[in-house]
Simulated assay, not measured.
Amino acid sequence: MAIKVAFLSQKGGVTKTTKARLFARAFAFNKWRVKICDFDLQQRTASEWGAKRLAAGIRPEIEVQAFAAIEQALEQDSHYDLLIFDGRGFADKLTLDIARVSDAIFLPSGLAVDDLAPTVRLAHELRKAGISTAKIAVVFGRTGSSEVEIAEARDYVAQAGYKVLERTLPEKQGYRAAHDAGKAADEARAPTLRIGAKHLAEEMAAHVTALTEKA
């Protein structure tokens, strides 16, 4: 049975798919059988990235497939060690369906209140639907150099009652270039970018490991 990890958001542009690709690559690199389930049938960002990666012959190979419903994705359960659910760029019934079957849930967010408020609202909706808050972790992306701004955003989420990861993924051209080439953030050309992404992937993995070991 595969471990199931969801990347969900209430709005687009918060590096949801960026985090999903990074997480997938980290585990695939360690010989896990990994599949990204792309539920955004309009954007298909993850699916198009997977096609670029396959065409370029980048290793490790990461399977990506588009799905319209969670039931279809769950049919893959016995064939993989890790299923990553990349949700749509908005919250709907499918978002809740994904959350209910997931072992861990990451809510990517930017630092502005325009991003933070919808993220917290989604977390509240999941909690109201019976999803354990222990499964939920907010992870920041597209951050700048202001530690004060990051600290204020972290405090905003913490006061709402949710876990916030310490590591962030800053806004860097090198990450965009890596994605355009079918690579993940920890495959960026610059060593400092690769190391920073690797540390974030490790923290996300630790969150998932803690939850699955308890289970």
Rank of each mutant, 00 (worst) to 15 (best):
R33D: 02
I195W: 05
E61P: 00
D180F: 08
R167N: 13
D186K: 02
T15M: 08
T133Q: 13
I136G: 06
F27Q: 02
I3E: 11
D186H: 00
T119H: 07
I84G: 09
L8S: 05
S9T: 05
V5P: 12
V5H: 04
Q42M: 01
V208N: 11
I195R: 06
I58W: 03
Q43V: 02
K4P: 09
T15I: 02
L107V: 15
E125H: 10
L41R: 04
A201I: 10
V208L: 10
A201M: 09
L122K: 05
A184G: 00
L200E: 14
S9A: 13
A91S: 12
A160C: 11
A206V: 04
E71Q: 13
A197L: 04
L22R: 00
E71W: 09
A51W: 03
L94M: 11
I84W: 10
L122E: 12
L8R: 07
V138Q: 07
V64Y: 07
A201W: 04
T143Q: 11
A184S: 08
K183S: 00
I150R: 09
A160R: 11
I3S: 03
R194P: 03
R127E: 15
K183V: 08
W49N: 01
A112S: 15
H199L: 06
L8Q: 07
L211P: 09
A56M: 06
G182D: 02
S78M: 12
T17W: 08
V101H: 15
V148G: 04
I3A: 05
Y156Q: 04
A91G: 12
K4S: 11
V5R: 00
L54H: 02
D97C: 03
Y162K: 03
Q173D: 13
A69P: 01
A184R: 00
A185V: 02
A201R: 04
K93S: 14
T15H: 06
T212I: 15
K172R: 15
F90I: 02
S9N: 08
Q76A: 14
R127Y: 05
W32C: 02
P170D: 09
E147G: 12
A20Q: 03
F85N: 09
A137F: 10
F67P: 10
T212N: 10
E152A: 14
A160L: 05
V34N: 01
G130A: 14
V208S: 06
L169E: 07
A51T: 00
F27Y: 01
S146W: 14
P170L: 07
A153Y: 13
A117I: 06
A104L: 02
A151Y: 06
